[in-house]
Design a binder for these strands. Structure first.
Length: 425
RNA sequence: CGGGAUGUAGCUCAGCAGGCUAGAGCGCGUCGUUCGGGACGACGAGGCCGCAGGUUCGAGUCCUGUCAUCCCGACCA
């Protein structure tokens, strides 16, 4: 991708009405556009990152048997009435709309009810179970106060997976597999170290649900860490009884701010019973299906990655989710022949990398070195290669990782091979 | 939903005891000089001063309303 053709521009100043670091950086770097409070559009660079994150999640969900679908944004009122969640008193974040004929519809804030109702059409026998379906879909939530940039928004893409099992034992096997898959996901996007399996409020169905909380000052939640066991307890459920149950001592816990990047629930059979999702078991008896729900907010996860890795110069993307892996910067030269050679080397390097399937941005603008470096630092692509008079005099390019302050020269003859090694690491 | 603050150029902001034709920096365009960490000069384009109403000879400036944005709190499967 030629930088000069890239849709989206960097800016020197961050918008005054954004204070969250993630949104300031993503706006300055041209990854997102703010449509209104808590509603952001994704530009090419931002979209690439979300697609990388989604692909990682997709791979892990598929690996534990998830099958991807996509539900609808418009939802039927009657389904939510069956579970007593249609009224604004019960769920205060509803967006609702009307059809031309006057009937009310809901705009999806969750898909538990519709998906479970749909599933009824395809489940009759124990032979149809268990299974897991998931989607990446917009959630619309009429939050009274959006905040923290892209961390808490009114419209966002969520991966939500739903598991349907014959009994609690079967459900638990899936639940545990999902837990492991989630840990792999957070590990792969670069947040494994600081993301904790956290005991949280379980709602009406079970004592606990489990959250995946990433430790960050930008987080809205307060959790208590038990680092050695890689566990945490959300403040909302912390009491002596819970501590005893989990075999934790209060003085061993560490209070930190964290952001909830994932949440998994056991719904038991309550919702199935409310909506009439039953199956005939081997013994010929009719039983309710055991339901589990597993969510990850894509935008929030992206925001947390930005918050965690950014430095004073800008964003620093982990390789796994970076919008591109290589950022080529070609510099100007006084000498016309030299300028032409720089252009030619940079251009062919760019083409060769793209042909190898290595996403590359080439900053070929007629801009000063400082400006290009500043933009490269802001955008945060992992590997920066400079092609200039200085480097070509040594038949080299300058190799610098965004996460490091050091740079070195790599011979033109070796650079492709070194990049391939770097990319596959 | 309660409290606080702010709306002036694409962005960051200045403006005033109410008074000439509304300003700066950045960004943008043209030309020239520069050329490895956001260079410099010249010229230029760009404004329903959030919106509506009111007070006044006169409103970006005062008053009322309204909309929007941010922060704190409440809320948060």
């Amino acid at each position: 991708m030629r930088y000069s053709r890239l849709f989206g521009k960097t800016t020197k100043t961050a918008p005054a009405d954004e204070t969250a670091k993630n949104a300031q950086l993503l706006l300055k770097a041209g990854f997102i556009y703010k449509e209104m409070a808590g509603v952001y559009a994704y530009l090419p660079l931002g979209l690439r990152v979300t697609e990388k994150i989604k692909q990682i999640i997709r791979e892990e969900m598929n690996a534990v048997g998830g099958q991807e679908i996509i539900m609808t944004t418009l939802q039927r009122k009657e389904l939510w009435e069956k579970t007593d969640r249609w009224s604004d008193e019960a769920v205060d974040i509803w967006f609702k709309a009307q059809l031309k004929n006057g009937s009310e519809v809901g705009l999806a804030w969750s898909h538990e009810e519709p998906i479970t109702d749909m599933v009824k059409n395809y489940v009759g026998s124990y032979r149809d179970l268990p299974f897991c379906v998931y989607q990446f879909q917009n959630k619309l939530r009429n939050e009274t106060r959006a905040k923290s940039g892209i961390m808490r928004t009114r419209e966002f893409v969520m991966k939500d997976l739903y598991s349907y099992a014959r009994n609690n034992e079967e459900h638990q096997v899936i639940y545990d597999a999902m837990t492991q898959a989630y840990l792999r996901i957070f590990d792969r996007v670069g947040l494994g170290e600081q993301t904790y399996f956290t005991f949280a409020s379980g709602g009406a169905f079970t004592q606990f649900s489990h959250e995946f909380q990433t430790v960050t000052p930008a987080g809205e939640d307060t959790i208590y860490l038990y680092r050695a066991k890689r566990l945490a307890v959300n403040k909302e459920v912390l009491n002596d009884e819970v501590l005893a149950q989990l075999d934790l001592k209060r003085e061993e816990l560490e209070e930190v701010a964290a952001s909830e990047v994932g949440n998994i629930f056991n719904f038991g059979t309550t919702k199935s019973e409310q909506l009439g999702l039953m199956f005939t078991d081997e013994d010929g008896k009719t039983k309710p299906v055991v339901l589990g729900s597993y969510g990850i907010g894509i935008g929030r996860l992206m925001g947390v990655i930005v918050e965690h890795y950014a430095d004073e110069r800008g964003i620093v993307w982990p390789k796994s989710v970076a919008p591109a892996l290589v950022h080529i910067v070609s510099l100007k030269a006084k000498d016309e022949a030299m300028a032409e050679r720089i252009e030619q080397i940079a251009s062919s390097l760019h083409d060769e990398l793209e042909n190898l399937g290595i996403e590359t941005i080439w900053d070929e603008r007629d801009a000063s070195a400082g400006e290009k470096f500043a933009d490269a630092d802001l955008i945060g692509i992992p590997l920066r290669l400079v092609v200039s008079e200085k480097t070509l005099k040594e038949d080299s390019v300058e190799w610098k990782l965004r996460s490091s302050t050091e740079s070195r020269f790599v011979k033109l003859d070796d650079v492709l091979e070194e990049i391939e090694v770097y990319v596959s690491e």
